[in-house]
Design a binder for these strands. Structure first.
Lengths: 229, 229
DNA sequence: GGGTCTATGACAGTTGTGTGACAAAACTGC
DNA sequence: GCAGTTTTGTCACACAACTGTCATAGACCC
């Protein structure tokens, strides 16, 4: 599950945020001070950090700088102050986004998802030999690791589906005919083209937000299939 | 230099943004409509795109979706509307950030810099080779991608329409008789010439701004059809 | 104004695509 | 090897999209 750390000294606001985030399906954790938050993040790294600016002791700016020193986690400032100076300073300190309280939980989670799309896949940073991942907006394909993620969520695809997806990804934006796919994915020189349809259908069930209206794995009638962002 | 594309229909706001961005050392380019912006980005990709939501013709949301389809460029919405629904919809459509007008230029550039930190180094790997397209004035025909775009906006044409269009484009500026088209597009040595009319009509519905007064796909009475700029 | 040419809406036949059901094949743990 | 599970390929059918024909109305030319 996706974990969020909320660093906010006001108990009521922190609690409200935590509850709202949990309602949205996040695993939310709170900290009342910067020090506490930094410690928590060091020991149990969350996937996102929300941080207030006005904190007792170490303030938000410093908290962001310290977080950034050894963590690439997306940081969103949630502050009551709507001053350009604060916004600029927070972003310069290393924050990724800045929203002004009170903020609708839907906006907040939408911003988290937007950040998720940009967040570096962990592997690319921490693995000495980076896995050549391919990203298509919400879709991430790691051919080496043999895994596929949609909006950060890992989805399990079968080997055939994976090969099919890779083949399409390799020629992203271009149409591949059913014949070409049969050839490249299955190694068949001829065969029933319906086979491709079926596997495309199954793949859509797994990687499309709305499989009935595919946005990435699209059909080009009479031509074949194409993968696009 | 870092290039920014500003898609905003209000001339004064666009100009103000462009000047301010240039002051900050960016190479700023403006577009008054989504269509114009999409075309600009396709031909001269900028490093960032700022886009308004309320645009004449194609609106901002659709513009974002189309940009995202084959571009990983950071997109920031600059809108007068401060509604949660708009913010969520824009972010879901693929925007990376959303700021409310009027916005301090310092905040905007700070947000751009924050986005740059996140800009996917993977982009180079994941961005597919640009799909070759034949440009024809406002029209772009791309056999590889199996698509046709008018003013940057994708239009779906059927296979027959596509072949017909290609045939006309190949002999752009010259008249092709119905017989010639029947021969080349359909492979018929003889047949009802009305068939060509019908398909030309359907094609016009899709690619002409005003299908009743065709400007590109014109009739030459008694001779045939011609594609012109 | 009459003849010719063109545009277009309606329609039915055809083709292409999506999908659920099912059985064969491959894999798994024992 | 065996029983249970997952994956794969085949098939049939329903549905959607496309195509070509036709009829009608309108545009154009002399």
């Amino acid at each position: 599950m996706t974990a969020v750390l909320v660093i906010e000294d006001d108990d009521r606001i922190r609690l409200a945020l935590l509850l709202a985030l949990e309602d949205e399906g996040y695993d939310a954790l709170g900290a009342a001070t910067a020090e506490e938050g930094l410690r928590a993040q060091r020991h149990h790294p969350a996937d996102y950090v929300l941080v207030d600016l006005m904190l007792p002791g170490l303030d938000g700016f410093e908290c962001i700088r310290q977080l950034r020193r050894d963590d690439d986690v997306p940081i969103v400032v949630v502050s009551a102050r709507d001053e350009t100076d604060d916004i600029v300073a927070a972003l310069e300190a290393g924050a990724d986004d800045y929203v002004v309280k009170p903020v609708a939980i839907r906006e907040l989670t939408a911003r988290l998802r937007a950040l998720r799309r940009r967040a570096r896949p962990l592997a690319a940073v921490s693995t000495p030999d980076p896995v050549p991942a391919v990203a298509f907006g919400e879709l991430e394909i790691s051919p080496e690791a043999g895994e596929v993620r949609r909006a950060g969520q890992q989805v399990t695809v079968t080997r055939t589906e994976f090969r099919l997806l890779c083949e399409l990804a390799e020629h992203a934006g271009r149409v591949l005919s059913r014949q070409q796919l049969l050839q490249r994915v299955w190694g068949y020189d001829s065969g029933d083209e319906r086979l491709v349809d079926v596997h495309v259908g199954r793949l859509r069930q797994k990687i499309e937000p709305d499989p009935a209206n595919p946005r990435h794995l699209v059909t080009l009638r009479g031509l074949g299939y194409k993968l696009q962002r």
